[in-house]
Computed example of a mutant assay.
Amino acid sequence: MPRKKQPIIEYRHYSLPIHFPILLLSGERWKISDIKSEHLHFHNHLEIGICHSESGIMEIKGESVPFKAGDVTFIPRYLPHTTYSSPNEASLWSYLFFSPEDLFQHSFKSSAYSYFEPNLWAIKGLNCILNREEHPRIYTLATSVVEELKQKNPFYQESAYGLLLSLYIELLRIHSRNEPLADQETQHNLKGDLVISPVLEYITKNYMSPITIDFLADLCHLSTTHFRRKFHDIMGTAPLDFLNSTRIEEACKQLKSTDASILSISEQVGFQSISSFNRCFSRLMGKSPKEWRKGAQSEVQSAKASILEFTGWM
């Protein structure tokens, strides 16, 4: 019996603004084509999407789930998926990207930290799409956040934060009611699709600590050789290069938002020497840390891939 072909999975890295870490993608350019991608993709932040027009299909967790205008989608980070419109249509979307753990850490009690994002293996694909008729409050809150961020009236950040917190709590409530344990076959298939997710989670939270390739391979229960190959197939880069790009991006945030010395920042993000930090920073950013800080733009520059490099948009 022939083996089932494994999907190709792309990693899409979105950089958040420093002082108000919520990214909004909205407007006429965010139309999804009706051509089904051969690749799945996943993000480094939680995604909330609002379908404004037309219809289509979202492929997620081995399911083909239909969507239509008025639906709100809720995709935790590191969950592979793809979306395409119905034939001869181009669905229009708005997207919100943010990290609940970073954004809401002061709004939740410490005992609630484990609930920042649902268990990837327990979520059913069907529960990632919420329609307007059954969940009118979800739709109202999501569209209200988008409008606040678009219009930028006085105190819009405070208003958007409160609305997004309310929206996120509503989403957690829904998923806490719909969280049966995934069957073993589903868990096996998902972990095969994204076996490296424990490493992505670990690097996101522990990039500042010393990390070895053997330790990362152990997190995935793979040999070092197999882990290197699997990681590169999915991420398009080596594990330690991904770690360093994570460190450099965090360094960019600190260079822009603080007056800390370059030496102090290099140590805080995990580099063992200022020389290795300078070399890595210059290779990824095209400038020295000192030059970059002097000419930093209004938004943090990303050390990783831009969303504009990816296909599937009209």
Rank of each mutant, 00 (worst) to 15 (best):
F281E: 02
D183M: 02
K150Q: 11
L46E: 12
Q297N: 00
S55L: 05
Y78G: 04
L240D: 08
V300N: 10
L263H: 00
A160W: 02
R3C: 04
S282Q: 12
L24W: 01
E291F: 03
W30R: 10
S275Q: 06
Y95P: 08
K150V: 01
I18F: 11
S159T: 14
H39G: 02
Q301V: 12
K290R: 14
P180L: 02
Q187M: 02
Q105A: 11
I50C: 13
F281M: 06
I213C: 11
Y84S: 05
F242Y: 15
I9W: 01
D233H: 08
Y168G: 07
S282L: 00
K31E: 15
S37E: 12
I211G: 07
K253A: 12
N189S: 00
T140P: 06
G286Y: 10
N244V: 01
F242D: 09
F277D: 12
V269F: 08
L40S: 09
W313I: 13
C280K: 03
G286K: 06
D233I: 13
H41V: 04
C280A: 15
E147Y: 04
T82A: 11
V195S: 10
L167E: 00
F116D: 03
T224I: 06
F97Y: 15
T246D: 00
H226T: 11
N278C: 05
L284M: 08
N178E: 07
S298D: 04
F215R: 12
H43F: 12
F242P: 03
A160P: 07
S288G: 14
E299S: 15
L167A: 03
P87N: 07
E47A: 15
F108V: 15
K109N: 10
A182L: 00
R77E: 10
A260G: 02
H175P: 02
I8W: 09
E10V: 05
R12M: 12
I57L: 09
S53N: 14
W30V: 06
K150I: 09
P118F: 07
S223V: 05
L216W: 00
F215D: 00
A238H: 15
L40I: 10
I169S: 12
E299H: 04
E148G: 11
H19C: 07
K230H: 11
L103Q: 07
Y161C: 05
S159Q: 13
M314V: 00
L165G: 03
I48T: 07
E185A: 13
K68Q: 14
T140H: 11
Y115K: 13
N278T: 01
G62L: 03
S110G: 02
V65P: 11
D34K: 04
I196D: 00
L190E: 01
K287Y: 13
F104W: 06
W292C: 03
S264E: 09
E133F: 09
L141E: 10
D233Y: 13
E309H: 11
S282F: 06
A303W: 03
E89Y: 02
S266L: 00
R247Y: 13
D102L: 11
E158D: 14
Q184Y: 02
L40A: 05
Y14S: 07
